[in-house]
Design a binder for these strands. Structure first.
Lengths: 197, 197
DNA sequence: CGTCATAAGATACGATACGTATCGTATCTA
DNA sequence: TAGATACGATACGTATCGTATCTTATGACG
């Protein structure tokens, strides 16, 4: 008798063990390599335990990603619009690893339509607020006009970043945000904040 | 002897039969339901025949989508920027079916990194040109300034549309482009075409 | 402290699809 | 008409799915 204690985890403890296993499988095999059987094996539990909690692989992965979100912006706000915008976009692109991008893509492909929005939010939860901080600071510095930036304009920037991450190769060249910042985003922000004629 | 002639298709004829079967399976079962076995069955051929041509399901589906691209813009250009932009975005959103969106999402999740850009191009091949036509017409009508619209600005618009299709529920409410057109895109285009100070 | 509902964990199941190997032969080319 | 090609059929072992069944550790409650 080598092992005497057949410990049995429950609830929160078990759930956390499952999440860690999901992340480990994700790191080792990528999204496509995550399976109920593999996760159960690694977490030293069984498939029914997983199926009681998650209805699909996508469900499981989304859940495991929750503690993986970013709580703080990747760069400090200086008040210089172009600098701050570039730092924010480049910083986000830098802190999201190729593996994370692959996971996002996998989730887009597999999650049920009803939860697609949650996928978008995964690592972008606070981006719109951080953009708001940037534009507020630029306005305070006199770089932008007095009109508040419409939410639609901020969402355009979020879309640009997310789109770039999804549709660009992660290996090879880094994303180049300079062109879009100079050629589109900064002019857009100036235009929408210009005082009414 | 019921059937006397065991006809055997080859090359182009066979390929076209395969493509049609892929589209049929796609329509019937959705992207997730497309399998090598199912396609082979429907096309009355065999798996090895498919594997000789395609290395993955994503490969197969991308190939089958080729003749499915759109060659003409969904609306005529009037010269009124806001109207044309809205018509183009809404028109694209309308002609891309929920099933097509599901296929796009599936492809994003499964295609190998090296071909991710092809996925983006699938139904958006000419969108950037059509946008250029719209801005050219607006410039000709005096609605935009003399500076040519930078490609980066047009790509922002493409990103907005693609992003909206991917991350919004297809069922339920139609995408609302009015807010983004008025609150971001039109001001952006005016700003980038303004004559240099 | 004993009872009991709960759920963990193990196992097994049929079904499905994977990707590959093998083989006979229809079809095209020269 | 000979030879190369590759279609079409079949079968294989493996992997994973999602579910059913059963035992038993665990914690709540009396």
């Amino acid at each position: 008798m080598t092992d005497a204690t057949p410990r049995r985890r429950r609830d929160a403890e078990l759930l956390e063990a499952i999440r860690e296993s999901v992340r480990a499988e994700l790191a080792e095999f990528g999204f496509a390599g995550v399976t109920f059987e593999g996760v159960a094996r690694r977490a030293q539990t069984s498939k029914p335990v997983l199926y009681r909690r998650f209805s699909s692989r996508a469900d499981m992965v989304i859940d495991a990603f929750i503690p993986h979100r970013f709580a703080t912006p990747p760069a400090a706000v200086t008040g210089d619009l172009r600098t701050d915008l570039l730092a924010l976009l480049n910083g986000m692109a830098a802190r999201i690893s190729p593996a994370d991008v692959a996971t996002m893509r996998g989730l887009i492909g597999e999650v049920d339509e009803a939860h697609i929005e949650r996928v978008g939010a995964l690592t972008f939860t606070h981006l719109e607020e951080w953009l708001r901080d940037v534009t507020d600071a630029a306005a305070a510095a006199g770089e932008l006009g007095p009109t508040p930036v419409p939410a639609a304009a901020l969402r355009v920037i979020v879309a640009v970043l997310r789109h770039e991450l999804i549709f660009s190769r992660t290996s090879g060249t880094e994303p180049q945000f300079a062109a879009v910042v100079d050629g589109a985003l900064v002019p857009m922000l100036r235009a929408v904040t210009a005082p009414p004629a």
